[in-house]
Design a protein around this nucleic acid. Structure first.
Lengths: 106, 106
DNA sequence: CTAATGAATCAATATTTCTTGATGGGATGG
DNA sequence: CCATCCCATCAAGAAATATTGATTCATTAG
């Protein structure tokens, strides 16, 4: 219960945000740099409302940031979040490493 | 669309398997080493049926392995899967790294 | 062979998540 | 102001996931 449980809910949120094709595609798109919703809507075949929903999920997981400029909202990847994700995965790695011996059961 | 898309579905499956509190708790438990369902059922407050369901999700994502011994099924973390996860996260990291410049929009 | 045990599976229900279309809000251009 | 544009939000319905209890299956003990 050591490391994972501290940020268990956070881990769940992070992984959930990443467990969707559309959202992963969005992240890939944002690889090109900061982009506004209309660009993303054009690039991916998706309605504005749908993307807005997924962008919100990504944002609430802390994976992306937004910035307003006039009527446009620009979204970009938050590098800190990716580090956080790495940390979580590292924890899992530790978990896996220590999993060795079997005990007699029941 | 380079690296992520190759294993997009796989990534989704992996992340989805990890996006649940019960399943993360299971992985944490398996940190102690190989364990049978009855042990896990005792340790976590969960019905056998429920755990069986989540173990299946983890297994189908390739995160854990099972081994039969008599009437007991032993589950353990699959270290390969954790590496795979690392790879996926590394890809995301690359994505984040390259996300720098903003373009004029719309 | 029969009974009992550990666990998977199934059907039904509940819960969560996603999609769609409509509405509203903030900003800009005229 | 007024109309328009970009986007968030909302309500409703659809779809996917999760939980529960019952059943089934495989294995072992007697």
């Amino acid at each position: 219960m050591v490391a994972l449980s501290v940020s268990l809910k956070k881990s769940v949120t992070l992984f959930h945000a990443l467990s969707d094709e559309t959202r992963l595609a969005l992240l890939e798109r944002l690889k090109e740099g900061e982009q506004c919703v209309c660009e993303l809507t054009d690039a991916m075949k998706a309605t504005q409302s749908r993307l807005s929903f997924h962008l919100k999920v990504l944002k609430e997981a802390g994976l992306i940031r937004d910035r307003r400029e006039g009527r446009w909202m620009y979204y970009s990847i938050d590098p800190d979040a990716i580090e956080e994700l790495e940390t979580v995965v590292d924890t899992l790695k530790q978990v896996a490493k220590s999993a060795v011996s079997a005990n007699r059961c029941c």
